[in-house]
């Protein structure tokens, strides 16, 4: 067991714990987008960053382990600025109309969803190629949870990947083929983890 301070609260916890879990243990909830209990945390959304005294940059609390004597601020002005800006940029890139969790976070952080409205959004035709579910990548924030689920965090079916680079990153099948032509087995485990409704069971979309 080690001791640290999170938002001035003294916390005792196991040394293998992440800052996020340690904060949770004293009732401090740190917002996150890509983190999911079932999956290996990729630490890519940076929404869960916190300010750690002595650290040059903000640290992702989902993967950063606690240290003896650490002083953590989970909601400092630096942290707030980052969270708000990330959400605003996301809203300026993606259709978040079905992303309930993100909408709540936007409200919470005071993010202006229209701030980057005149920026180029990622818009794609809906992919409706199988009897089970629909893929609407205009709603996709490339959190890569579905890829993780499809590959080595759950399913080992390897039907999905992230393709491209940078802002052009997309979730794609092999050569962007229709799902029935791929190794997809329609387990739908990807739907469970999609935070924005980009993947949606057909009946849900009606």
């Amino acid at each position: 067991m080690i001791g640290l301070f999170i938002d001035d609260i003294e916390v005792e916890c196991d040394e293998e714990m992440t800052i996020m879990k340690a904060a949770e243990s004293v009732g401090i909830e740190i917002p996150t987008i890509c983190y999911h209990e079932k999956l290996t945390p990729p630490g890519l959304c940076r929404q869960c960053v916190v300010e750690v005294e002595g650290a040059r940059v903000l640290l992702p609390s989902c993967v950063t382990k606690v240290r003896e004597g650490m002083k953590v601020k989970t909601n400092s002005p630096r942290v707030q600025r980052v969270r708000k800006t990330i959400l605003e940029m996301l809203a300026g890139s993606t259709d978040l109309s079905n992303a309930q969790g993100l909408q709540e976070q936007m409200k919470e952080s005071g993010a202006d969803s229209k701030r980057f409205d005149n920026s180029e959004k990622r818009v794609f035709p809906i992919k409706d190629d199988n009897p089970f579910y629909i893929r609407d990548y205009s709603k996709c924030i490339v959190c890569e949870r579905c890829v993780q689920v499809c590959s080595e965090d759950i399913q080992f079916s390897y039907a999905l990947t992230t393709s491209g680079r940078g802002y052009e990153n997309r979730i794609s099948t092999y050569y962007d083929k229709e799902l029935p032509q791929t190794s997809c087995v329609f387990c739908g485990n990807c739907i469970d983890v999609c935070p924005t409704g980009a993947l949606i069971a057909r009946k849900e979309s009606l």
Binding site: I33, L44, C45, R46, T85, N169
Partner: peptide, 20 residues
């Protein structure tokens, strides 16, 4: 904008918005 790998949001989105 061309070389961001796109993994993390600040850079994926930021390098594009900054360039725009």
């Amino acid at each position: 904008n061309h070389e961001s790998c796109g993994k993390c949001y600040p850079c994926q989105l930021g390098s594009r918005k900054q360039h725009e």
